[in-house]
């Protein structure tokens, strides 16, 4: 399992206990869960609805808060359950808006590259979390969802498959293809540097416009 996204560096056991306590109505435990899960959900939702991710996760949390007592499962199950709810709300949102935000932006505008960085790693040092997520969300949607559910939400292939309504093998394949495409994109931008924008928050790598 990946590291906790909670700012307070809460470990998984503590979060598991918080889940039980929150189900019994404990507010502080609910806040602890929120701080761990919400960053995962909003990043996952961002790949589906772009800038509307916050609205989508707000809707999702209304349902999570309402149905938390009836949820049965452990912490991993809880993350999968919340991701499923978030995805449904995101798809509802897309149906309402009938569009897919974010996909019309070329990835080069979103990524800040190092000038003469001889390694891609050096280039990535300048990429803030937001840009990394945008890079992932540029993947075809099934690949982006698979990568985000595995990496950011922290689910295994089987749980991610449940969220997506797919078999775990299909999720593995989609995630694999997504990573390969990401690697390609990193290689392209790292060597060709077609377009670099230095006005993002990642200052260290912003100076190298050719």
């Amino acid at each position: 399992m990946r590291e906790c996204l909670h700012n307070g560096a809460v470990d998984e056991d503590e979060l598991g206990r918080a889940l039980r306590a929150a189900q019994d109505g404990d507010e502080e435990s609910f806040r602890m869960l929120y701080r761990d899960v919400q960053p995962r959900l909003i990043r996952f939702a961002g790949a589906l609805v772009g800038a509307d991710a916050e609205d989508v996760t707000s809707e999702a949390w209304l349902q999570i808060a309402r149905d938390l007592r009836s949820f049965r499962g452990d912490l991993d199950g809880f993350r999968g359950w919340t991701a499923t709810i978030t995805r449904h709300r995101a798809l509802d949102h897309l149906r309402r808006k009938s569009r897919r935000p974010g996909s019309d932006l070329p990835v080069e505008e979103l990524v800040t590259m190092a000038a003469d960085g001889d390694t891609e790693l050096a280039a990535l040092d300048g990429i803030a979390t937001e840009e990394a997520l945008r890079l992932i969300s540029e993947l075809p949607r099934d690949q982006a969802e698979a990568v985000l559910l595995r990496v950011v939400v922290g689910l295994d292939a089987k749980s991610a498959g449940k969220v997506l309504g797919k078999r775990s093998g299909a999720v593995r394949t989609a995630a694999y293809r997504g990573l390969r495409r990401l690697a390609d994109r990193l290689a392209e931008t790292g060597t060709a540097r077609p377009l670099v924008r230095g006005d993002k928050s990642s200052g260290p790598g912003a100076e190298g416009v050719t």
């Binding site: 996204l5 919400q38 990429i127």
Partner: peptide, 26 residues
């Protein structure tokens, strides 16, 4: 390595702007 760095960046701890809906959820 580059992919690992990208994915690690994507899983950075939650930022305050991502947690703005906490009180509403509570």
């Amino acid at each position: 390595a580059p992919l690992h760095a990208l994915l690690t960046t994507a899983t950075a701890p939650g930022r305050p702007e991502e947690l703005g809906g906490e009180d509403a959820a509570v």
